[in-house]
Design a binder for these strands. Sequence first.
DNA 1: ATGACCTGTCAGAAAAACTCACGGATATCA
DNA 2: TGATATCCGTGAGTTTTTCTGACAGGTCAT
Lengths: 302, 302
Amino acid sequence: MSRDLPSLNALRAFEAAARLQSVSHAAAELHVTHGAVSRQIRALEEQLGVTLFDKDGRGVKLTTAGLRLRDVASEAFERLRGACADLRREAEDRPFVLGCPGSLLARWFIPRLDRLNRELPELRLQLSASEGELDPRRPGVDASLLFAEPPWPTDMEVLELATECIGPVVSPHCPVFDAVRNVEPAVLLKLPVLHTMSRPQAWPQWLRAQGLETHDLHLSQGFEHLYFLLEAATAGLGVAIAPKTLVAGDLAAGRLVAPWGFVETDARLALWVPRRHGDPRAERLAGWLRGQLQARRVEHAS
Amino acid sequence: MSRDLPSLNALRAFEAAARLQSVSHAAAELHVTHGAVSRQIRALEEQLGVTLFDKDGRGVKLTTAGLRLRDVASEAFERLRGACADLRREAEDRPFVLGCPGSLLARWFIPRLDRLNRELPELRLQLSASEGELDPRRPGVDASLLFAEPPWPTDMEVLELATECIGPVVSPHCPVFDAVRNVEPAVLLKLPVLHTMSRPQAWPQWLRAQGLETHDLHLSQGFEHLYFLLEAATAGLGVAIAPKTLVAGDLAAGRLVAPWGFVETDARLALWVPRRHGDPRAERLAGWLRGQLQARRVEHAS
DNA sequence: ATGACCTGTCAGAAAAACTCACGGATATCA
DNA sequence: TGATATCCGTGAGTTTTTCTGACAGGTCAT
């Protein structure tokens, strides 16, 4: 029992009061009322069975026992303060690691990276393109940016950034471009289309949204990653289906066209933050990303 | 803000878990459930913005940040533990100072002091006979033993030990003894009686209890302290009035007789303990005193 | 005396910590 | 290879601690 520490909050209150020679000043430092500090000191005196303060005029004065305890307590708390401050500072200085699929990284993020680093330098953003499947729970990753459909897992805080719109895109230099320039969506059913393993539902989703049957679909070349699919499309290999966000740049530059329009899906572009960590910088990043996605839309509308 | 310490209870939970490399063992050490410790560690990690533990199989392992914090925290807490244990030990070893009127000290306490020191050696009892008025609030006095009537002051814990009975006593060798051996109380009104300044109400109280008028009372020699009054009575100077407890020894030894009996007053023999200190040893002393007072009564009855 | 200032105390309110029960993951044993 | 035991994390609800706000008493300077 004697190995047990007394109440640590009481010790902290005592230490502050002893250091400042004043219950009221200690209360101010601890952001509480003087009554709270007075109580804590009383409790500590009872636990130790020792008088720590005597009244001295209208203030207080340490007893010899109090003096000895103050010396130890002040040093102990000062060390703890220092160690905690170091840890906090390092946590703040640590780069923020953002997991991100390669396609999103290449087509959307890289062009905006410079501005991000300028506007949010304290983030020290470090991008980690996923190899294979993106795992938002991978240790060392502070947050992940990805397209996905609700429901969200409970162990992640999901900050939604934008809805997803998908639609067929094709290069104007594509050999079949003349055949497909007809904006009637049904024409696409007659053509072999490019697709990706990671989004097998993309074509059926879009076709259903157009009121077309999906069983006539002719899938041709498939790619493991969306990133390669988009490269293939811009290279003129055929008609691909892609999220609008990822091809907005290509559309603006004329490298791709999307004559058949886009449809909104249930998926969301969202920032996934493991609840375990909950880095406050994730919120800042989400805010900035929302601003960028908004700006892009405004730019298009004008 | 960064000068602020994180939650100290969280820090203590972390320190225990880090030292024992186990949340459950830490919980056992702190006498709480593992859930409580887990929560505290989680809270600390959030406050510092740093991961302190990683999962390791079915246990936990410190991160490098956790390792650094543990080193500091363990030392800091160990120092605090040591300082507090020292203070507690000294508090325990410190003599227990009991304030006591000289009469009670001489007539009741001193004959029992030897047994008390044998039966409660850890008390290291130190008796402080009051000079002049006994002040139960005097600094340095852990408790005071005195006769007094309720109501009790609120800043004192009053442990009642026995009721007070007072009555006239006289030495068998007193010159007037033959005159007063008549047990009719009224005879006392005809004699000059010894009294004390500190209990001016003693005689009137007793007379009223006998159904006698008080205005006929002839006070003769007065003494400042009860102690001297009793000395005078045993020396045969006259009839005194005294608490039964203080003259029980003299009655048993035949140095005094009390043919007129005793009456119970409103006063109590009680141990007064300043609430500010509340030394737990006061309870032990009160228990022992009650036992002694009881024993004396039983002894008389038999 | 009066006002400024400080501390101690109380009842009730607010906040923190705890418990209990459950779920998921990992070792150990048969 | 299941079955079992152990360990940690989490959520709802409750208990315990702590704080507040108001007041009382004491000291000091004017």
